Simulated scan of single mutants.
Amino acid sequence: MNDILCLVIPCYNEEAVLPETAKRLVSKMEKMIAEDFISEDSKICFVNDGSKDHTWKIIEELHRKTPMIVGIKISRNVGHQNALMAGLKTVKEFADMVISLDADLQDDIEVLDQFVQEFKNGCEVVYGVRNSRKKDSHFKRFTAEGFYKMMSLFGCELVFNHADYRLMGKKSLEALEEYKEVNVFLRGIIPMLGFKTGSVTYGRKERFAGESKYPLKKMVAFALEGITSLSIKPIKMIISLGALFFVISICILIYILIRHFSGQTVSGWTSLAISIWAIGGLQLLAIGVVGEYIGKVYLETKNRPRYIIEKTLF
């Protein structure tokens, strides 16, 4: 008996692209079923992440017309990572393997069968990895590569050029459920699971319709969320900076004493101003970083649900 595959697609204001996405995914899934590659019970699950447009109405209509398509409606917008978690946790009850992907058709769906083949070869987690960034603008390529380098610098283990296009088997999904933190960063958490992994390379396409949900501002916030969720290295860096400034202050003290005993007590305002601004800036930076971690601890201790499912279509 073939394994049941479920596709999980988080959606936020995707009314412009959703009908075409569903059409292409259904066609691909039906082809894989006809080739006896996956079970006929396989599903496509759209997760509505509190969309403000007609995304949920479209999902309901697609479900009525095509039983293969199912849906999850979250009560409010909780963000891509939490919406994805909601979908993964819901479908793992009946699926043997789950592939997560975006709704904008930038992830190449023609390689879905390669993901499944890697799973059949014994891989519990299969990463979709971009084979090139030549189509990206220079700025986009620079910021994307900078993101992975920065995450590596702060001790976060990520798969280079991998986003959230991946396959997970039931074992890895059950292991993922053991991670209870509110601040979810799946790209960093999943490599921690420790199962056998594989990869599938693909060419990322242009967005079919609509606008990107990740402008630069959100990408920066996403990177900071990942760093502070996975690493305490920023706090260690503050300790190092504090030690450096302490050594500098000792040197300045020695310099002042030498000038005092040599009778040269007139000092300029430049060194004083620089010292005040440097130390003040470091203090504000330290307070901000420590405050970010304290805020995350505060949210974790409240133990609030990451999402609330309002309605399901199965």
Rank of each mutant, 00 (worst) to 15 (best):
M219T: 00
V220M: 00
A221D: 01
F222G: 00
F222I: 08
A223D: 06
A223P: 10
L224K: 09
E225S: 14
G226Q: 11
G226K: 10
T228P: 00
T228S: 08
T228C: 07
T228M: 11
S229P: 01
L230K: 12
L230V: 13
K233E: 01
K233T: 01
K233H: 02
K233W: 12
I235D: 00
K236I: 00
M237P: 00
M237I: 09
M237C: 01
I239N: 08
S240T: 10
S240E: 14
L241V: 06
G242C: 00
A243R: 10
L244I: 07
L244H: 12
F245H: 08
F245G: 00
F245I: 04
F245M: 06
F246G: 05
I248E: 11
I248S: 01
S249Y: 09
I250T: 05
C251W: 05
C251H: 07
I252P: 13
I254L: 13
I254R: 06
I254Q: 08
I254V: 12
I254A: 13
Y255G: 14
Y255I: 03
I256A: 10
I256Q: 11
I256N: 13
I256Y: 12
I258K: 09
I258N: 11
R259F: 15
R259Y: 15
H260P: 09
H260A: 07
F261L: 02
F261N: 07
F261P: 15
S262A: 02
S262M: 14
G263A: 03
G263L: 06
G263W: 14
T265S: 00
T265W: 15
V266P: 00
V266E: 11
S267F: 06
G268E: 05
W269I: 03
W269R: 02
W269Q: 01
W269F: 07
L272V: 11
A273N: 06
A273I: 08
A273E: 08
I274L: 09
S275H: 10
I276E: 12
I276D: 11
I276F: 13
I276C: 09
I276L: 14
W277N: 11
W277S: 13
I279E: 01
G280N: 05
G280C: 04
G280M: 02
G281L: 04
G281Q: 05
L282C: 03
L282N: 08
L282K: 05
L282W: 04
Q283T: 04
Q283F: 01
L284K: 13
L284C: 10
